[in-house]
Design a protein around this nucleic acid. Structure first.
Lengths: 80, 80, 80, 80
DNA sequence: GTGGGTTTGTGGCACC
DNA sequence: GGTGCCACAAACCCAC
């Protein structure tokens, strides 16, 4: 990166800005999520509970996958 | 939420699914960010340092200076 | 913290060193864990599988607690 | 691990429990660290900065200098 | 202002 | 030996 004002600098700046752009979009989506929760709250629902529901629904998938992997390992260990 | 099988339940389900959809999009963007860093690394840049840069640019100039001043102070106190 | 060479400096140094001491102990325990896994491996067990077991046994407790909390919340929502 | 109900199973259980015990001790030490930081905060110190100090002291002087030099370079490239 | 939760960053580990 | 992955730990944010 000898050319501070040249090509490498442009590339570096490009990478930084691409990341920043993506992070902004993520932040916008996070704001959207927040809005949905606010709307749910305004409709009389308990936000905390909904968060738990979302977490559980996501976790269930993860657990299922892990369980399956573990089961496969056990099967092989036991020559089943 | 007296009507478990009725209107309220539908609304609740709607909120949950909207959140899940948004979270999926966020996950996709996180993957994109990861890709950008991988590309930067492949171009010879140091990923860890770029992360620091992004973090610094997100900070207010004032905060950045304050953090730095505080760190310098503690360093002097400890002869670091 | 006007007295760089005085009381405040001593306190700061004390805090830093207490943390460092605790972190060292943690590192020692991490090394012990590593040793146990090495011994298990030497006994013919699959380390990765044992890690999964430990994770599952820990996660089960967490899930159980969350499930219970969620159930309580549902009960209240439904006036049961 | 042919003898699921026998010797091998006992050994496996032993390994799992030893790891769990060690992880518990680690968790206790983590709690102690947290307490120290809380006490430091109560004495008027900035916790975040102390964490930085601890991190810096853990680093090799050479690595510390390299990180700093790299960050400075990137900063200059980006006119930060 | 404090605590809990979520998310991000970093380090270790396995695989290639 | 390098790279991708995963789990732990730290930082940030919100709610109370």
């Amino acid at each position: 990166m000898a050319e501070v004002g040249g090509i490498a600098a442009d590339r570096l700046r490009s990478f930084v800005e691409r990341v920043e752009r993506l992070e902004e979009e993520k932040a916008a989506l996070s704001a959207d999520v927040k809005d949905v929760y606010a709307e749910a709250k305004g409709s009389g629902f308990d936000v905390k509970t909904i968060r738990q529901i979302v977490r559980l629904r996501k976790m269930d998938q993860t657990d299922r996958d892990e369980q399956e992997a573990l089961l496969d390992l056990y099967k092989r260990v036991l020559d089943l």
